[in-house]
Amino acid sequence: MENTINGISQILSNWWTEFRADFTNNFIDENRWQFLWKGLLCTLQITFFAAIIGIVIGFMVALIRTTHMHTGKLRGLEAVCRLYTTVIRGTPVVTQLMIIYYVIFASVNIDKTLAAIIAFGINSGAYVAEIVRSGIMSIDRGQIEAGRSLGFGYVKTMWYIVMPQALKNILPALANEFIALLKETSVSGYIATQDLAKAGDIIQSRTYSAYMPLIAVALIYLVLVVGLTAGVNRLERRLGRSDNR
């Protein structure tokens, strides 16, 4: 009995010593944690600005397509939008990223982070567009008719009546899209952007640690996602007031 306990505590203590050494080696020595910190900032920067581009493109595309559906106008623009969604959703984001950096901006000396922002923004726009479009179409046509019958034009009806309701319905899906976006930016290392995932690689290449940098990177992503989810839940509750019965 005593032997077993001694054995276990010996194993634990060995593991702990090893863990501490590994931790120090990976994050403390030569201030290697700074790679993670800078990588985190880079990831957040890419995600944030890409999300903004995605929202702008996504809403424009969705509004063009639904306007076409409701009124029959904007035929040409609608075709362009449909092509955009098809191409972006039909090809992998890594490929898009590399095409943007190595082909489209090949002759220009563009900042890698900026290239990533543009690539992920354009990519996210297609998904946001589909989410927003489904949100608008989920609103009963009677809402539009009620707005129009009161004398609102099409644009004002969309603005005051349809969009507030659509936005509320799509908020969870939109949040999921941005959480997915945050994680997808981890492939921006393909164009040598020094984002969070890449920071893990860099540390690994110096310390040859098999798991420590990877686990650290995973934990940071997890914390970000959990935080984001909590924020969205709060927003949803605030928007849900009119559902009270």
């Binding site: 008719e145 009620a146 019958s149 004398g151 309701q165 009119s242």
Partner: peptide, 22 residues
């Protein structure tokens, strides 16, 4: 037509109140 519709009230079978507003 938007100006004309202000003068013509319409009531629907399914009410179509705006659910997000008081």
């Amino acid at each position: 037509i938007n100006l004309v519709r202000r003068k013509m009230g319409m009531v629907f079978q399914h009410f179509h109140l705006f659910p997000h507003l008081t």
